[in-house]
Amino acid sequence: MLDVLYEDNHLLIVNKPAGMLVHGDETGDVPLAEVAKEYIRQKYNKPGNVFIGVVHRLDRPVSGVVLLAKTSKALARLNEMFKSKKMQKTYWALVQNRPPQESQTLVHWLVKDSDRNVTKAFAKENPAGQRSELSYRLRSHQEEKYLLEVYPVTGRPHQIRVQLASMRCPIIGDLKYGAKQPLPDKSIALHARELAFEHPTLKTKVSVSAPPPAAAAWAPFRNLK
């Protein structure tokens, strides 16, 4: 079942559940892209091949807003917006420790180990790494959970996860980066909350937000705007 947040002739924006792949991999599990194609086939009675372009990805255990393109024209323009950092991305992250400051900008050089699928953060420039930047602010504190609103400037693999862990604030459930225990559904408490950008053909502003997951970890923050 696809949780559609916004749709028009060029765009399909959905709320991806934690645990779903965006692209297919060696597991053979059905990815979001294929679910979206089937949704369009059924809704518009389109047999045969359906175009869906994946503009960006979320890690499998992460939930939230995913932008898909329904036309090649939209895909090309949206890809260019991501490259030129014209997309405003907002994430919510639940962490198990209070951050050292209530708001801060973090800059690291990230080096990905593809064999182990893990990323390391270096505070000083590393020739093997990619410069990575985000800002965060503390939004709420409930039941020994700290909700950070995160604004990534760059989009590196595992960036938010490893940069928050680098300041001893691992995301709840994220065992790979230092969380104490898993969440029951094997998700991590990182949610792509909002995406704002200029429509690729209409040139109007599009801003779409996704409610946090139904998982118990998010219960204290569900009514937060």
Rank of each mutant, 00 (worst) to 15 (best):
G155D: 01
R161D: 05
L175V: 13
A179G: 11
E149A: 06
H158S: 01
V150L: 05
E144T: 13
S166H: 09
I172C: 04
Q142S: 15
Y146E: 06
G155A: 08
E144P: 08
R161F: 04
P157G: 03
P152E: 09
I160Y: 01
V162W: 00
I171H: 04
G178T: 13
K180M: 13
K180Y: 06
K176A: 12
G155S: 08
L148I: 06
L164V: 12
R139S: 13
E143A: 15
E143C: 14
E149D: 05
L148Q: 12
E144R: 13
E143V: 14
I172D: 01
L147F: 10
D174G: 09
Y146M: 07
K176V: 11
E143N: 15
E144W: 08
L148K: 05
E149Y: 07
P170C: 07
T154H: 00
L138W: 09
G178D: 08
Y151S: 12
H158G: 00
L147H: 05
Y151C: 10
Q181A: 15
Y177S: 05
L147K: 06
D174R: 05
L138D: 10
C169F: 01
K145L: 14
I160R: 00
P182V: 06
I160K: 02
A179C: 11
E144S: 15
S140V: 10
T154M: 00
S166Y: 08
V162P: 00
L164E: 06
G173P: 06
S140Y: 13
R156P: 00
Q163W: 09
H158I: 00
L175C: 10
P157D: 03
R156K: 14
R156Q: 04
G173S: 08
K180P: 07
Q142F: 13
S166K: 02
L148D: 04
L148Y: 06
S166P: 04
Y146R: 08
R156T: 01
R139E: 15
V150D: 02
I172A: 09
R139I: 14
V153D: 07
V162A: 00
H141T: 15
V153M: 11
I171Y: 06
L148H: 08
P152I: 04
V150K: 02
E144L: 12
Q163S: 03
H158V: 00
D174M: 10
G173W: 02
I171K: 10
R139A: 14
P157A: 07
Q181V: 10
G178P: 12
M167N: 11
E144A: 15
R139Y: 10
Y146S: 08
G173F: 06
P170L: 05
I171T: 02
H141L: 13
R139L: 14
Q163A: 01
L147C: 11
K180I: 11
I171W: 09
A165L: 02
R156G: 00
V153A: 08
P152R: 02
H158A: 00
K176W: 08
L147R: 06
I172W: 03
Q159F: 03
Q142E: 15
H141M: 14
G155Y: 07
K176R: 14
R161A: 00
Y146F: 14
E143L: 14
P170Q: 05
M167Y: 11
L147D: 03
Q181D: 11
P182M: 08
E144F: 09
P170R: 09
R161P: 03
D174S: 11
E144G: 14
M167H: 12
L164D: 05
L148C: 07
K180C: 12
P157K: 03
K145F: 07
R161I: 04
Q142P: 08
V162G: 00
K180N: 15
